[in-house]
Amino acid sequence: MKKFNSYFFLYSGLLFFGLYGLIIAVDPYDKLGINVFGLKTKAVASSRENKFYLLESSKDAYEAFILGSSTAHKYHTEDLEALTGLKTFNYAVQHTTPEDYVAIINHIRSMFKPKLIVLQVAFVDLDKNYETDKILYSSPLKDFLGQESKNTYIKEDIFSNNYMTLDALRDTFRVILINIAGEIRHQYLAHGNYIPQKDGTGPVQVVQFSHQNWILDLNRVEMLKKIQKECKDAGINLVVISAPVSIDHLEKIQADPHMNNALKIYKNVLAETFENVHDFTTEKVREFNTTEFFGNSTHPTRKFSKYMLDEIWRKK
């Protein structure tokens, strides 16, 4: 009669500590800097680490840089080089906010004397409810954080409840499987370019639609102003692009009064902060409404990214 209770507590203890221990050992979100099994890739793309070390180990003297979130992944350095003649590195990383841009520019300037920075700022980047990715604070970029960020990040420890979740459990097993038998995602090639993708012809899926509670983050606006000032003082040509979204995505935003107003605020902030801004969050995207130009509603393909660069440099 007593078997069930004893076994239940025993098995529960073993299972729980076993699974939690596995999650910590795998560290699927790279929050703890642990990699017991020497895994090549983690659940969340380590784009900050990848690009950081790619740049550090490169022998090229880069003069132009492309910054942004994953929405800027598909800018190809060859396309910008063809327009400017400047050796280019694509430093777009996942899930960025202006804190990342400050750190990345600090890193770039610690190694190079850039002449051109193309910075793509997305609508979500200025949303207070869109949290800065905590991976920034455990990545090598943490040593290049702006002064305003140095005191704000919270040190993750192994009892952080980010890892006491089903998602973390799932991603732990996914990371293990991918490392054993799967395809490693988000690989970067020379100069930070993204691995080539096959463009489709189908409809564009609306994704990452999380703007319903958009509130302007004034601290991030200050960071953008700082970026503009530092670039101007250092003689760096800073070209800013508002990250494009597909027409369906844009219309969804415009259909909601709050989001539509937020979009206007975002555009005004960019226009007032930067001297050289190019707005692609417009109706112009209507004629580009297939997966040939947008992999999904927030991620333009190389073709559309090239189109944007061509448009900007044609105007020049």
Binding site: F4, Y7, L10, Y11
Partner: peptide, 13 residues
Amino acid sequence: ALVTAMMFVLCLF
């Protein structure tokens, strides 16, 4: 007990 423990631990996460 094992099956119950498995379900329980999954729920804890």
